[in-house]
């Protein structure tokens, strides 16, 4: 099996006291007082695992265990403090939908803007524009500024843009089921389609039942450390036991 993601002894540290300093004056004062000690908070400590092509990997753990941090590291948003991460293929992170939307622009303009931000080419977007529009069911509103949209409509548009590609590596933070009942079913089906469509998936969720159903592998994180990896059922059982 080909390894598409290799995480090698990765640690991610934040300097906590530094983050309090946000103005030049505070920085100078604390520099003079020698308060800027390198106190590190380790969000991840020595994490290693790898993912084969076609794997659907569930990442579980309590709040603050470092699940989102590992996703951001794999997406390339963070550089690890120590260790390395190797990825092969195009990654589509679905960390937060519609983050590139601009409320002043129309729906149509936002499809192109957001598509460009997600890394789609112009030709691809033009070709698939109708498909996006159809899936979002927003035909009559598409030329209005999206600040006039309801939050549900905005999510529908964002979901439609984000899921139009067939990604090689898909990173999902909680299943994205958005909009009203009917659209939720539709988007859920679409997600399942993507996840079962041969893509490699990294999936963070608190819903153990869904993880057991969808994933063939799981990683359990606890306070920045890997507690257990491997077979989904075993990892989930161990995690459930720890919760008591």
């Amino acid at each position: 099996m080909e390894k598409v993601i290799t995480v090698n002894n990765v640690s991610m540290g934040y300097r906590i006291d530094r983050s309090k300093v946000s103005s030049l004056k505070e920085w100078a004062v604390s520099k003079l007082k020698r308060q800027l000690k390198n106190e590190m908070f380790w969000a991840l400590k020595d994490v290693s695992f790898d993912v084969d092509r076609g794997d659907v990997v569930g990442i579980i753990g309590r709040n603050g265990a470092g699940k989102s941090t590992i996703l951001k590291l794999i997406s390339g948003l963070f550089k690890p403090t120590e260790g390395t991460i190797d990825t092969k293929g195009r990654i589509v992170p679905m960390l937060e939908l519609g983050s590139g939307f601009d409320p002043e622009l129309t729906g149509r303009e936002n499809i192109f803007l957001n598509g460009a931000i997600l890394g789609y080419s112009e030709d691809f977007l033009k070709e698939r524009y109708d498909e996006i529009l159809e899936f979002s069911e927003l035909q009559e509103f598409i030329d209005r500024p999206i600040k006039t949209y309801s939050s549900g409509m905005m999510m529908r548009l964002a979901f439609s843009v984000a899921t139009i590609v067939k990604p090689e590596i898909l990173i999902v933070d909680e299943i994205l089921a958005v909009g009203d009942d009917a659209f939720q079913r539709k988007s859920h089906t679409k997600m399942m389609e993507l996840m079962n469509g041969g893509a490699t998936v990294l999936y963070v969720s608190h819903d153990l039942k869904q993880i057991r159903n969808l994933c063939n592998k799981a990683v359990w994180l606890e306070r920045g450390k890997v507690m257990k990896t491997g077979n989904t059922q075993e990892v989930c059982d161990a995690y459930k036991d720890s919760l008591g």
Partner: peptide
Amino acid sequence: NFLMRQLVGRDFKKKYK
């Protein structure tokens, strides 16, 4: 280049809307 055009276009559309 496509992303760049989108971002520049956004600045303009917003400025003169």
